[in-house]
Design a binder for these strands. Structure first.
Lengths: 343, 343
DNA sequence: ATATCGAATGCAAACGTTTGAAAAAATTTC
DNA sequence: GAAATTTTTTCAAACGTTTGCATTCGATAT
């Protein structure tokens, strides 16, 4: 029972009738320690499985080597890709990642951040939740900034903070996607938009609109409907689109999930893709290459985003006092597959 | 610059010319504190954004409220589902999850565990890496057990440890999958096996073998090839299978990824699925429902596994001294789709 | 024999918080 | 106005580790 208490430096000191300082120095190969003492102590420590209590060190040095990652969800491919990217860079540097999932809830986001600050996390990667944006609150962020804890926005962001951020060029990706549909010859292009207010949604929406404008195509309000980033949320809106008197001949979904939902509905209605209706998604999730027909989409480099975000964090950390926030915008890339290739 | 140092209880005490104890008690609504004092201190604390240093508390109470999750990867659907399940139960209880990715490497696994122990993590969920099993080392685990840190195995496990574990009934899932193929009328059923040694691989393999035996079907060694759980690793083995003088008329893949890899190769060879060759996977990952044809598979309840594992952890934590490890085995369930439905 | 030096070790403070026990202050009682 | 009582506050130790400075102990040089 008692054996479960971890061995401390004091325990070892008692055993050798010496002071904790000596043990500490012996374990850390301090030169001023007698060779024999050092060897004996190190051997004994190994034998009893001594493991330095990093908590006490954290307190002493005010360094925790832990970072917070606050994301709306981890069940999407993209988010895990980002986390993997963060991991790739930061785990080898000794950082520990504390993953917090907000489920798109403002309250959970607030609590997560508060918890991370209490735990003296050394940096926070944040992709804000949908509710947060809707609510328009950002006191919980003020808090982080006041602490001068490096805060890196990932993808979803607030425009009005002096922080670093890593985002994908959603605007041009969307623009390219829609332009591709136009070039194929689609005339009535609908958009299944993401939730209002989020930068991601709005940028893609803007790309859609501006591309239509550029090509002098009419913007039909009834062809723009909101969805929620997941498959289910696309079902009803797509049905409504296809039941219109003048239905669209192509749909640009805010992400792959939504496009796949639309694909389902279209197939159920007996429409042929891409002959009767063209489809484009966004994300280039692995699944998009295996749907039937395979889905034209816009590649979003999640792993790279994670790695870039790490870099931004490290820059801010090592930056001397006069730190200037950086914004990294990675290009997105159109991936043309079958779902839009009407000949 | 200086403003970034977090406000401490001592700072507040100085401000009110009182002792830290008073501040601490005031903040914690201790009854023995004067109402006015309490209010003033609380107000001021809020104003300056005081946030309790949990690190110091961890040291004092020997409780860190953090748990380790050590997994080979997070880029598969199943793993993230498990993590989500863990999250669902444990985040509301105030636990923080430290995710460590081993990339199937023994060394990384060892280091991760060591780090988690040093950080005085209160429990560890472990899905052992492939290399670890191959190497046969388990000293790093002895260490965890010696510390009496609750260790919960997830899916991949060692047989010979007295720990709790949550696994899916791979054996019967595989058995059902193969039996389904047989019932449809497939005669030459190949198996793309996972890496040798891992329980997951071996159980599914055993299900495959025993089902063939039960139905008096010959076991052809050349129809059993190893893969690595990912799409790419299935390509070559499948090619070899299809180039045999007497090729299989069905393939049971160790997971969906592998089955999808096989599907790719089969289609490239001009084979029709399920008419010319039947395919079954394992996992019921979201992608499996959207491949063409959709993939027959075995559902593996990742979220549930995560939640059950949490329960096991909590049991062990709250259990009085005489703790007996539990093994939870969740049933897997055959999901029949198009890839095996030859009429 | 004593001063000097170098090597090895110990002391004490610090990180931020909580908490039982003691002390101080305020209030009540006679 | 003093004693008793209650309310409020402070003291000190503890958690585990590191580290500048002081100390001790031999040994060497004078």
């Amino acid at each position: 029972m008692n054996s479960s208490r971890p061995v401390t430096i004091k325990d070892i000191a008692r055993r050798f009738r010496c002071s904790p300082s000596t043990v500490s120095r012996a374990l850390n190969d301090h030169p001023a320690i007698n060779e024999d003492t050092r060897k004996n102590i190190q051997e004994y420590a190994k034998e009893v499985g001594y493991q330095r209590n990093e908590v006490s060190l954290s307190l002493l040095n005010k360094k925790t080597a832990s970072l917070g990652v606050v994301v709306p969800t981890i069940s999407n491919y993209y988010e895990t890709a980002v986390i993997e990217g963060l991991h790739t860079v930061l785990q080898p540097m000794g950082y520990t990642l504390n993953i917090c999932v907000t489920n798109e809830s403002y309250l959970l986001e607030k609590e997560s951040l508060s918890k991370l600050l209490s735990n003296r996390t050394e940096g926070i990667f944040l992709s804000v939740s949908q509710e947060t944006y809707d609510a328009g609150y950002y006191e919980h962020l003020e808090n982080v900034i006041q602490r001068k804890t490096p805060l890196i926005f990932i993808d979803r962001e607030y425009e009005d903070f002096e922080t670093s951020r890593a985002t994908v060029d959603d605007y041009h990706g969307a623009f390219a996607a829609v332009e591709h549909l136009i070039s194929i010859g689609y005339k009535q292009i609908a958009h299944l938009k993401g939730p209002n207010g989020l930068t991601v949604s709005e940028q893609r929406f803007k790309g859609y609109i501006n591309c239509l404008k550029k090509h002098n195509m009419p913007i039909r309000e009834e062809l723009i409907l909101n969805t929620n980033f997941n498959v289910e949320s696309a079902i009803l809106p797509t049905k409504r689109l296809l039941e219109l008197a003048s239905p669209p001949d192509a749909i640009f979904g805010v992400n792959d999930q939504v496009a796949i939902g639309a694909m389902r509905v279209a197939k159920d209605k007996g429409l042929r893709i891409p002959q009767d209706i063209g489809l484009v998604g966004f994300d280039n999730s692995p699944i998009s290459a295996y749907t039937f027909p395979s889905l034209t989409t816009v590649h979003r480099p999640g792993r790279k985003i994670g790695m870039e975000a790490s870099r931004l964090f490290l820059n801010q950390l090592n930056g001397s006092g006069d730190f200037a926030p950086e914004s990294i915008v990675l290009p997105s890339e159109l991936v043309i597959r079958e779902s839009s290739l009407r000949i």
